[in-house]
């Protein structure tokens, strides 16, 4: 029952943040960040299991490892960017959060360039000249 633990942790942390926000808002913000990191860390083990299964399946199906690696990197970039943007938005800096999300999108696009190149080259080869 991991979900009960996560929800309980969230409720306790929310209560503490409410108490702390009256006195010192900075500490309340740090506490909220800390709680978010702990919840994410407790979940990432499950994600790792799923990714191991995916990797094994891809090896069995003899998929080009470039594709799987790129997809995993893109998912990782998305997670990190989302986390950073949420923490920044919690602190009230919505504009910086938007820039972080923009950086995430651009980096994902850069990651996807090799695959797009491969697809377009394949299509060009198939097309009759």
């Amino acid at each position: 029952m991991e979900i009960v633990q996560v929800v309980g942790l969230g409720l306790v942390a929310t209560f503490l943040v409410l108490v702390l926000k009256e006195q010192k808002p900075v500490f309340a913000f740090l506490l909220a960040t800390f709680t978010g990191v702990i919840i994410f860390l407790s979940l990432i083990g499950k994600i790792a299991d799923v990714l191991h299964v995916l990797t094994r399946l891809a090896e069995q199906a003899r998929v080009n490892t470039l594709f799987l690696e790129t997809i995993l990197k893109i998912i990782g970039i998305a997670y990190i960017a989302e986390f950073g943007a949420q923490v920044t938005r919690d602190a009230g800096q919505g504009s910086i959060a938007s820039k972080i999300e923009l950086a995430g999108k651009i980096l994902i696009m850069v990651m996807a360039i090799p695959i797009i190149t491969m697809i377009i080259e394949t299509i060009v080869q198939i097309l009759p000249t």
Partner: peptide
Amino acid sequence: MPYNVDAIFQIAGIG
């Protein structure tokens, strides 16, 4: 949950 949840109470207490 393998991580030390006590740190949350530590931070709240410090605050």
